[in-house]
Design a protein around this nucleic acid. Structure first.
Lengths: 172, 172
DNA sequence: CTTTTTGTTCAAAAATAATTGAACTTTCCG
DNA sequence: CGGAAAGTTCAATTATTTTTGAACAAAAAG
């Protein structure tokens, strides 16, 4: 009398193991730090625990989230390079594996979330520069605006540095 | 015939100047990047433009926000060291000046917002360590958890580094 | 061509976060 | 003492974000 087969038909809504609970909790926490939706943390956390690639259904069944949530969450994680889609022999569904190299995740977040923000900041600063061009360059406000531009520079310089820091062979 | 006096009685609900609008817009944008409430950006932005220290009333009047919002916003900015309260001769109200050194603001945010989060992360990782202590140390999951701990280390190392980077005499 | 499987989209609902405003405390002043 | 000014607190409201689920498309299978 065979046990459950490996076929992907049965929903297998098995509850989460204690370890899974804990890892998922950790990534939900990370998501909150980054102000990303909780579901992203859940999805990534479950995938992080899984020794095998998982399809969308797996997240719906095990995390008890809607198909819509899973679909959107997986899309965002994909654009962040936090997960990679792979095709599994003889299974029509797309499966995913987690990117477990911190470096790649961090650079994904920097590229997708931070960089674009800094771009629009630069544009704003240029507009401000125009607005203040005719005012006294020694005034307090002019001095402060100079400082603001220095801020932006610093932040832009910081990014590649952070990327370096999280590389495997990081020094400090 | 004297112009308006310097006394702090008249509400002076003067509209924001174009420069103020723009600077405030910029800091609201920064607030959004950091997922802080918009009102924090508005308050800090207005103060950043002001050549003189401002009391709570000034924010209520010029930004058209409630006293409660102003009070809470100022409190948070204070804990972040983004503003400094000062006492003005002959005025009972507490006034504020902006901290305009990026370094001090960044370290405030790191200390108040990021550090505490990393602390709880460390606690979570220790709990996970216990949960996995009896499982096979060569299993994929064990390997990945090792990696997680390395992540945490890296992040902790990164913080003092970021602080350095935003210092005035920063190298790169 | 029809059905099933897989996955996306998006308006509505639910959950979460921010803001308001009225009640309250404290301090200052006469 | 009162009373006014300054500021805080917090429950209720408002605004924003996230999640759901039903309708829809695409592609394989029958």
């Amino acid at each position: 009398m065979p046990r459950i087969t490996g076929q992907h038909k049965q929903p297998a809504p098995s509850a989460l193991s204690p370890i899974e609970e804990e890892v998922i909790g950790l990534f939900v926490h990370y998501a909150q730090i980054l102000s990303l939706p909780k579901s992203l943390g859940e999805i990534y956390g479950l995938l992080f625990c899984s020794p095998v690639p998982l399809p969308l259904d797996a997240f719906v069944a095990r995390l008890q989230i809607s198909k819509g949530s899973a679909s959107q969450g997986l899309r965002i994680l994909r654009t962040l390079n936090a997960i990679t889609p792979i095709t599994l022999e003889g299974d029509r569904r797309e499966h995913f594996i987690p990117e477990t190299r911190l470096r790649n995740i961090v650079t994904g977040i920097l590229r997708e979330r931070i960089q674009p923000q800094l771009e629009t900041t630069t544009a704003r600063l240029e507009r401000l520069d125009q607005l203040t061009s005719q005012s006294d360059p020694d005034s307090e406000i002019a001095i402060r605006l100079k400082r603001l531009q220095a801020w932006n520079e610093k932040m832009r310089n910081l990014l590649p540095f952070v990327t370096k820091m999280v590389e495997p062979e990081a020094l400090a």
